[in-house]
Design a binder for these strands. Structure first.
Length: 578
DNA sequence: GCCGTTTTCGGCCCGACTGTTTTCAGTCG
């Protein structure tokens, strides 16, 4: 289903978790986690590597290489199966509850037989945790809150995972004889930040062969609904997929209907009604005679309604239909407009690839410029020092000019402390060409303190970009409590850009924040925050959120020429800046 | 389990925060 590297990464992570839960072997657990990360971020497909080449991946030795080979050969790993037998899968799922780690999960399982998040909820309700050592009132409250955060996202999955499933399914169905067209629609096509279910549309004269192929997909666990033109299945991961088959002559109307959003479709039907037309998934019809007026292409249907084609990322009933009527749809930023990435990490801190590989990938993507922004010393676990940063700058200089037009920028990701101060004194900050500043801790400060903190960071004459501004993480954290409008205003006033972090678990800022921020006249940076070469491709998710926030290229600083970008990086009061 | 100008053993990313365990374990980044 997913890329082999992603599958192997998931398997090794699971094994690491199982080691942690069963206790003993903290370093072994770390070794598996490290190998999982390295393989997940490895540029070559592990299925094409033999044991010797596998061992060349940092963190992969003979034992892990053997397990990877075993998995690729047989689809299973005996050692993993053994651990699975000892720990019910629901116990591992407890680790997804923030503030619950392996130790507490195991205690809950051993002492109370808790083996799922639902069990845990029940145990909390019956106050059975109170008897346990290490589960005081505050800890129980934290677990309760953790479950609530988790539940907010449960039933939904991250956009990247949904796109993998959607693209794979479309590719399979497109091969079926008699399938004339196939595409995914729904919230995946609108690139919503999380996805509840996946809608697939196919065009065929006879639906049944496509339906049969759909039901037979390896990822299908259960056929929920089975009709002539519509089938619903549930995957082994609990995700719901809907397939609808239409005639090819209804394709455009069908795509509009199944892409949604529902609210957008209602707007369109209202317009149709005023024009004495009727819009359904089969087409746009004359209300009186029933004659078909348009259906084959989305453009034709929109045109018949007196509208230009509206990009799926805008179809949320946020004024796009009215804007289309006035012919004032924004010119949306696209991935092609992006000239470079301004936030990335190497193995000097917590990335998994060396500088050379990150730069090579940036060059391969055709970028004009690329900023390397490893963590600064304040994030202690990264062990950054000024000497290391300067050595990296030298290395970057040596690489300059080796990749055609690609220009390399030496930057850093600073840590914003609770008072809004960042690492390093001004003169050191001035040595860097670009400075991202982000919150990495103290998520619990109150609203006034968080707001002061971020505004202060904006006012720092060396801070160019506020990284992942809300710090929310899908299924982990809701994000800090902060007066975003005050921060947006500070960004606009000080010439500080706001990041749209493209990591599929962050997407921070999200579409709604972007819409609000842009009203303040803020500039944005769409960044990957890549920790591996493959992560540079996450940019597509950030660009999609930018589109959902109605951004045009001019509002995004990394669509600009390097000359214009450099001018922006010299903030008012930023001194030499560079 | 991985790794090596500390090289085949003995380390391993380090520190803060939190709640509760009265001396520190567990979780997080």
């Amino acid at each position: 289903m997913a890329r082999p590297n992603a599958e192997v990464e998931a398997l090794l992570r699971e094994y690491a978790d199982l080691i942690a839960i069963t206790g003993k072997g903290a370093f072994k657990q770390r070794a598996y986690e490290r190998a999982a990360r390295a393989i997940g971020g490895h540029p070559t497909d592990v299925a094409t590597l033999d044991a010797k080449r596998l061992r060349e991946i940092p963190g992969v030795g003979s034992s892990i290489a053997d397990k990877v080979e075993e998995y690729l050969r047989t689809g299973r790993v005996a050692a993993v199966e053994e651990r699975r037998a000892a720990v019910p899968p629901g116990v591992r799922a407890l680790l997804d509850v923030p503030t619950l780690g392996p130790k507490k999960a195991m205690t809950l399982y051993r002492e109370l037989g808790v083996s799922s998040v639902d069990d845990l909820s029940a145990a909390l309700r019956d106050d059975r945790l109170a008897e346990l050592k290490g589960f005081g009132p505050k800890a129980r409250e934290n677990i309760e809150h953790g479950i609530a955060v988790l539940r907010q996202s449960s039933g939904r999955i991250a956009l990247d995972a949904a796109l993998d499933v959607a693209e794979e399914t479309v590719a399979r169905l497109a091969e079926v004889a008699g399938c004339r067209r196939c595409a995914y629609a729904g919230s995946v096509r609108r690139m919503k930040e999380t996805i509840g279910d996946i809608d697939i549309l196919a065009a065929a004269d006879d639906p049944e062969p496509v339906m049969a192929a759909f039901r037979a997909l390896p990822l299908v666990d259960e056929v929920v609904l089975r009709g002539r033109t519509k089938t619903t299945v549930r995957t082994v991961d609990g995700l719901q997929l809907d397939l609808r088959v239409l005639g090819e002559d209804s394709w455009g109307a069908g795509m509009i209907y199944f892409t949604g959003s529902k609210a957008h479709n209602i707007r369109l039907r209202e317009i149709a009604l005023r024009k004495k037309l009727k819009l359904s998934e089969y087409g746009l019809f004359d209300a009186r005679t029933g004659r078909k007026r348009a259906a084959r292409g989305e453009e034709q249907v929109y045109r018949r309604l007196g509208l230009p084609w509206i990009p799926p990322t805008l179809r949320e009933d946020r004024g796009e239909v009215a804007a289309a009527q006035r012919d004032e749809l924004p010119e949306l930023v696209t991935e092609r407009d992006i000239r470079g990435d301004l936030h990335s990490h190497t193995d000097l801190t917590d990335g998994v690839a060396p500088l050379t590989e990150m730069v090579a990938e940036a060059a391969r993507r055709g970028y004009h410029y690329f900023a390397v922004t490893d963590h600064a010393p304040e994030l202690r676990m990264q062990r950054m020092t000024l000497e290391k940063a300067r050595a990296q700058r030298e290395q970057l200089r040596e690489l300059a000019g080796r990749h055609g037009r690609l220009k390399l920028l030496h930057g850093t990701e600073l840590n914003i402390d609770p008072a809004g101060e960042v690492d390093w004194p001004a003169e050191v900050l001035a040595e860097f060409e670009i400075r991202v500043a982000s919150v990495h801790s103290h998520f619990e400060l109150d609203r006034a303190a968080q707001t002061r903190r971020l505004v202060r960071a904006c006012e720092n004459p060396h801070v160019n970009i506020i990284g992942h501004p809300t710090t929310r993480k899908f299924g982990r954290r809701t994000g800090i409590d902060v007066d975003l409008d005050a921060v947006f205003a500070a960004c606009a006033r000080t010439g500080t850009a706001l990041e749209i972090n493209s990591h599929p678990n962050r997407l921070d800022l999200n579409d709604e924040h972007i819409l609000r921020a842009r009203a303040h006249g803020v500039r944005f940076a769409i960044d990957s925050d890549a920790h591996a070469p493959a992560h540079l491709a996450h940019l597509r998710f950030g660009v999609a959120q930018a589109q959902r926030g109605w951004l045009s290229p001019d509002e995004v600083i990394n669509t600009w020429t390097l000359t214009r970008l450099r001018r922006f990086l010299r903030k008012p009061g930023g001194g030499r800046g560079s």
